[in-house]
Design a protein around this nucleic acid. Structure first.
Lengths: 148, 148
DNA sequence: CATATTGCGTGCGTCGCGCACGCTAGACTT
DNA sequence: AAGTCTAGCGTGCGCGACGCACGCAATATG
């Protein structure tokens, strides 16, 4: 029960990033999406859903992976019918990665399900606290100690 | 910019668990500890610091890893002088994993440094908000949607 | 005393990753 | 216009981490 803010957050992060916790979260994140979607491929789908069709290099930058990794994941997702490669009309060497309808539907469904699960679990919190927490967490993750 | 609590938290978690973010956090978590300590071995040290000397099996359970993994990490840390194996006086097949003084010092130093970094980054938050956030985060991680 | 069980450590196969290379296509120089 | 340089993608290779299954030693059980 540290009264120290920094330590409390640090410990929470440690727990959150542990393999077991991480895999449990991802298992739920990818539940029912078929075996093509897992901890590794999820960020590809998620990234594409956020930004729309995109080159492999750009996507690699965003999810912090080597381009070769993106290529391989994309191939797996392509074979599963969740993603398609389309030639960039403006640049004939580039290939745009885009979600198929199935891909979009899959990730959207799971996002909904996960969000519902989280909200259920937070239903016992005092009213308003969950909203505040969500905003703070968002701020912490996107503009906090690890993102400059 | 979802007003939806569940989605906002889900997205934040997604970002947080991305490889790039994760590795950045761990890089800072293990900064200056020598190359024996990294994303993989850190939970071993952290777990031992929390619970004291412990059997490999028990530790494996806690950090959600196979026993073989714990064995290997322990060996690495042992060679680096951060951990020592001592026979369990009560059971001669068991080996207790315990931090050495160097191990304890190393992880303590880093915990301090990380906590300070986090607090620095949160210094611009309105007074009290950081404390509240830390408590909520702790609750979310340890008694939230993914820990029953 | 014989058998089953527990606890560790190790060999093996699998998987994900980064790096470096080759190939194609566009950009730039002269 | 031709030659060279750069950008973008995919693939082969080696590395490291992991889980599984086995063997060995020690304890529990009947």
């Amino acid at each position: 029960m540290p009264t120290d803010v920094g330590h409390e957050i640090a410990d929470a992060l440690g727990t959150l990033l542990k393999r077991s916790t991480r895999e449990q979260i991802y298992r739920r994140l990818t539940e029912g999406l078929g075996e093509a979607v897992d901890e590794v491929t999820y960020p590809v789908l998620s990234g594409l859903a956020r930004t729309g069709p995109r080159s492999a290099a750009g996507l690699a930058d965003e999810i912090g992976l080597d381009r070769s990794g993106v290529t391989r994941r994309a191939t797996r997702l392509e074979e599963a019918g969740l993603l398609r490669r389309e030639p960039d009309p403006a640049d004939r060497r580039a290939t745009l990665l885009a979600l198929t309808e199935a891909g979009r539907a899959a990730i959207e469904t799971t996002r909904q399900r996960l969000a519902a699960h989280i909200e259920d679990s937070l239903a016992s919190w005092p009213p308003g606290e969950a909203q505040t927490f969500a905003r703070r967490l968002h701020r912490f993750v996107n503009h906090g100690p690890f993102t400059g």
